[in-house]
Structures are given as structure tokens and as C-alpha cells.
Design a protein around this nucleic acid. Structure first.
Lengths: 135, 135
DNA sequence: TGTTTGTATGCAAATATTGGCATATTAGAA
DNA sequence: TTCTAATATGCCAATATTTGCATACAAACA
């Protein structure tokens, strides 16, 4: 199938658009557990959709210990155009709310690295609060 | 489902992208038989995909006798942004070739209106040639 | 009214996608 | 080497999509 068709097809799923939205807004690398917590979805679900997005050429990945960081693949100029478009287009509440939660979750990073795995939904906000109160 | 997700999902099909490509490049109304001839697909196939695109809010339609003309719905500004993006993004050979054939097919219009139904593939180019040689 | 023409649609088979569970893989730590 | 943690994947059932055919519909015209 035509490559661009394949790419646009890969976009056509709510979970995948929510994942991409986080990468596009954040602009830097993210690991799976940060996505799991931000989107409140099972890990296997996120992993599978990331895999589909990766096959479509959206991501680079890089392992650091047991963590794997994904990053948008901006080396292709038509990808870059696509991301720019989506950044403006995905302006609905859901996408904004997802990013707000991601930003909270990123407070748990230390020296720019994820240092916790995924956190049961009920503990997440408490944990973030404790963390930000540490001095 | 989220409206924008639904819209992007509707894009995720080769036939539908090819149809949209023709509208976006041409910028004016088109009838089903012009699409059938340009994309060389069965009429029911085109009609069904147009229906999906219409449900996603991409088209207005207008009947003139037995012909039905479709037109891009530009009244929504986020649609307009999407079309602008696609105009640049759908730059592959297939999309250009489709538009070249459409332009040929449009030579059969008279006073801006489609006056023939769909034409067997083998006769199309001959018919266009005859038409353009008239006077 | 009957026929033709452009377009739409109901139905069923073929195919593809999604979501859930269990389990595999990989690397670090004990 | 064994355990744990982060991530990936194989398998299956459920669901959705696509395609093809036949046919319906609506307007024009004889």
C-alpha cells in the first residue's frame, strides 16, 4: 500500500492519536509507563499501539536499562509537516487533559529520567503530590 | 467517538484519500461518474466511500437532474486546515496521476456541467480526444 | 406510463482490526 | 543464578470494515 496512506491509516485510532498527541505536545522522549499512567490504559494496549505507530515510521526508540524511550521521528520532512498539522488540529479537551496529566506524571522524573514504573491509578496523584512536596 | 478522531479515521483508506485528493486539487464540484472514470473503480464503490466521507462532514451535495454534485465543505475552519495540509501532503505519484486523468475527464463537460455518464475505461481517452478535436 | 440513466443502498462473504489475557523477553539487582 | 521490573508479543474472540453483487430510487424523457 502507498506509504502515505499507510501513515494516515495508522492515525485513525483514538488511542494512537492520544499517544501521538502526548509526544507532539511534549516534544521529547517518553517511556511506556509514562504513557500508561497518562492515558490510564493497560500496558499491553499501549505497547501494541506504539508498535503500530513505529511500523508507520513515527518513532525512534532507545533503550536505557529496562526502560525504553520513544521519540518522534522528525528526520522525515513530511512527518514534520504532519506533526505540525496535528499539533494545531488535536485541540479538543481530551487531548489537552491527557497532556495535563502527563505533565504531572513527568514530575516524577529525576534528572530527566523516568525512575518509577507504572503506578496504580488510585496512587498516582498522591505520589506526585508527595514528590513535589519533598524539598 | 471524538469528532476529530472520526474524521481522521475516515481518511484512513486509500480510495477515500484518492477521492479527497481530487476534490482538493480541483477545488470545485464533481459528480460521481467523473470520479468513477478518474479512479477507474465501480460506481457503487465510489458511492459508498463518498457516503462515508459525507458522514464525516467532508461534503455538501447538490442535485441537478439525475446528476449529484459533491463539493468540499469548507465552512468549518478545521476542515479547511485539514484540506490545506492534505493538499501539500498527498504529493505522491498516484495522487498526481489521478488528477491528470480527472482533468482529461473534465474536458467532456459542457458549460461547466457533466453531460455524460460513466464511460467504459477503454473508450474514455478516445472519447476525450474526439471531443477536443471538435471545432 | 415505461424506459433509460445517474446514483444510493441492503445484504452477505471476505478480510482486517481491536482488546484482553497470558506469557515471553530483556536488563538490572539481590 | 534467581528475582523483579519494564516492555513486547502470540493467541483468540469480538467487532468493524471492505468489497461485490443485485437492486432500489429519483429524475428526465419518449
Amino acid at each position: 500500500m502507498n506509504k502515505k496512506v499507510e501513515i494516515i491509516k495508522a492515525l485513525g485510532d483514538e488511542t494512537r492519536l492520544r499517544i501521538l498527541n502526548l509526544f507532539i505536545r511534549w516534544g521529547k522522549n517518553l517511556c511506556v509507563c509514562e504513557l500508561v499512567d497518562s492515558l490510564k490504559m493497560p500496558q499491553y494496549h499501549i505497547s501494541k499501539h506504539i508498535n503500530i505507530l513505529r511500523s508507520a515510521g513515527f518513532f525512534n526508540s532507545e533503550r536505557e536499562g529496562t526502560w525504553i524511550y520513544y521519540n518522534l521521528n522528525n528526520s522525515d520532512s513530511s512527518n514534520k509537516e504532519l506533526f505540525n498539522f496535528l499539533k494545531r488540529y488535536l485541540n479538543e479537551e481530551q487531548f489537552e487533559a491527557d497532556y495535563e496529566l502527563l505533565k504531572q506524571r513527568l514530575l516524577l522524573r529525576e534528572e530527566g529520567k523516568c525512575v518509577v514504573g507504572f503506578i496504580p491509578e488510585k496512587d498516582l496523584l498522591k505520589k506526585i503530590q508527595m514528590k513535589t512536596e519533598e524539598v
